Simulated scan of single mutants.
Amino acid sequence: MVATNPLRDDKLHYHHLTSNGRKVLKEITARTSETGVMEFHGVDAREYEVLQHVLEEMGRIKPRLTYDYSKHLLFVDIPSPLHEAPFINIRDSLACTIEHLPYDHDVICPAINMNLPLEIEDILATLHISITLTKAERPITELLVPLIGECICSETKTKSHIMDKMKKTIDAHPEINMVILGIVHEAQAYECPKIGSVASKTLLKSPTPIPRSKFITKSFPPCESINIADHNWCHLSLVEFFVWVKQDGDTQIDLDQDDNDHMARGVLYPEVRMDAVTKMFQQGLERIRDTFVDFTKHISTIVDVTSLEEAEVVFPISWKDAFIAADVSVDATAYARYKHWHENQINPTKRTWDLSYSPSDSESESSVSDDAKLQEGTSLSCGRPRRKRRPASQPPPR
């Protein structure tokens, strides 16, 4: 008989959740990106681990999680296509910049990461975008983070949480040379259609969501509401970017500084005004190149870094392409919201397992026994379970 791997058993993970954990899971799976950041109290470290596994295995949503081990506090951010789109072009352009730098691939290993979990003291934070730098050979004993970035909605609570997370990341990694913040504004906050509304009466006639091509049948101009069946599904009004770069003499980046030497603001949507941001990107990437130089010297005293020191930094961004990506993401977000709403109305139990499930006595005893075994086999470090660390990045192909 083949033993079951508990890490691959969805229901085993689910049954390890307490009633509070199940409520958290139900809340997460019931919400979409219009919610902003959700905050859950009283989630212990082990339950956080189980929630992580359950959400990964469900696969229908991919939230960014931030967990505070000391406060037992879980923050959940469910990004929409609106928030993902602006960083796609930036990621690709950063990859091109790094690819053209003549660094020694046998000595250092830079990587561009999307949704990287990063441990910061008692917090496990998921960064939207980051550049990490390690040596090219194991064991990996140092991790530098020259760049971090987030793209968020304009909701006040969300912005406050993200700014706090970035400040704590900077405190833990003062070597950060560049910080990017994108803020997405919607003219109308999205709400699901109400029972009895035109949208509810017309769009719930089909037992399954209609295809996107039949849901959005016309072209909507920029900054106009995607209004279908007398309901607003998405109304993007503004996408702005803020970029901070560490200057000579600075110990670390201060996100409260807004002078022109340290911070630049630009508008990507509804019209492109990104010249100041482009210049700040150039400055930041030149400093990241210098970090590559310093880290190479730190690892090896015999490697010639002259060509890297003198290398021109090229950031081949097309903000017009980024604008188009943001505009196209409006339709994608509108359809995703419709589909999520439709599925929850027609078949609400589809989003997760039966949340009213109550295990039998034998199952409860088995679960308690499993919990005890897991706890016995768990060593503690700094008041939390010691987890197997994931590598921060994979070496680039040679």
Rank of each mutant, 00 (worst) to 15 (best):
D361N: 02
R387N: 12
F281N: 01
H128K: 13
M114F: 08
G196H: 02
N347C: 05
P209C: 00
L55S: 04
E47Y: 01
T97W: 03
S367D: 03
G383R: 08
K297D: 05
D354Q: 07
K279A: 07
I210T: 01
E191K: 14
R31K: 14
A336R: 03
V267L: 10
S197G: 13
Y338E: 03
K23Y: 01
S93V: 07
E99S: 13
S360I: 04
I152S: 10
A45V: 06
K167I: 12
P391N: 14
F242C: 11
V243H: 03
H83W: 01
E271S: 10
P6Y: 00
T158R: 05
F40E: 06
C109T: 15
T296S: 02
Y69H: 15
I162A: 15
M263A: 13
K194V: 11
I131M: 11
D171Y: 06
R351T: 10
Y357D: 02
K373Q: 06
L25M: 06
A336F: 00
T66W: 02
E34G: 04
K279N: 03
F295P: 04
D294L: 09
L308D: 05
Y48A: 08
R138H: 09
H262I: 14
I78H: 02
A172P: 08
K62V: 14
T278Q: 15
S33L: 00
I61H: 12
L147P: 08
L374S: 15
L94T: 11
P110D: 04
E191F: 11
Y48V: 06
Y103N: 00
F75C: 14
T291K: 10
I302H: 14
W319G: 00
D230W: 11
V328C: 10
E186R: 10
P117V: 04
D361T: 10
R389I: 09
D9E: 09
N89K: 10
Q375C: 10
D294M: 11
S197C: 07
T126K: 12
V305L: 03
A372F: 05
I78S: 03
S329T: 02
I253Y: 01
D92G: 13
D106Y: 06
R46M: 15
V272P: 01
S366V: 06
A322P: 05
L374P: 14
L355S: 13
A229Y: 00
D256Q: 13
D44H: 08
H340Q: 06
S360Q: 10
T29R: 11
S70T: 15
H235F: 04
